[in-house]
Amino acid sequence: MKILTLIKLTLDISQLKYESTGEPLTEIAPKKMGDSDKCAVEEAVRLKEKLGAYTVVATIGSTSENERIIRDAYAMGIDEGYIVKVEDPEILQATSIGKIVSSLVEKTGPYDLIILGAGSLDTHSYTLGSIIASKLNIPIIAGVDSLQYVDGFFEALCIMEDGAYTFRAKAPLVVTVTTEANEPRIPTLKTILRSKKMEVKTLTIHDLGVDDVVKVDLLDVKRYVVNRRKILWDASEDLEKAVDKFIEVLVSEGVAQ
């Protein structure tokens, strides 16, 4: 079995700061491997340990931090890694990223399983896995909370708005996992040292035979501001007054008498 894991360098949005005009200071925000991508790596490594799968990881980007997250994946147990050099992958259309990945699959595959995080925290689109599946014309199971391999089938549990779905499918398959899927391992010194020595291969989009990438025509990004009344009462000063005010609101909203 051969598995491809896709990982992305994402902003730590909990640490995002803003310009006074509301523009996010993305260049100084800390970046890391996406949380759900890390779970995808963990899932791949577990399949390697259980079934002896060969695991490959890939990321798209052009900074030294991209290399760092590949090595982080090596330290978790991945066997081989690629960086596809693209400047500012953030502003590429998801469909272009899909094209790049499907060419990568053709060049380095075939793979039985392509696994990635369900959604990156920064743009949180949840669409990349689907785009790849459609380009490769193989099925997808998206938003997986628990993945098993039973009798030649991948069996995935997905908890959704209306209930629990269990999907079963044979390879080849695309799977996107949520952060519920597992608890990613913390690398040991031994595996970190190993990861430092492994080769990280780089490819350009031309190596992959892709030459028409489409950029998103981004006009503006600003902090989301909500205009709400923001009327506050301090209950630690006057509990009775605060509770009475609370009830007044309930009454004026028509939900209490």
């Binding site: 909500v226 923001k230 209950a235 630690s236 509990l239 605060a242 509770v243 005010k245």
Partner: peptide, 13 residues
């Protein structure tokens, strides 16, 4: 992000 806010311990409020 609120219209109305109560600053206080929920176990009292």
């Amino acid at each position: 992000e609120v219209d109305y806010g109560i600053i206080g311990d929920l176990y009292q409020v």
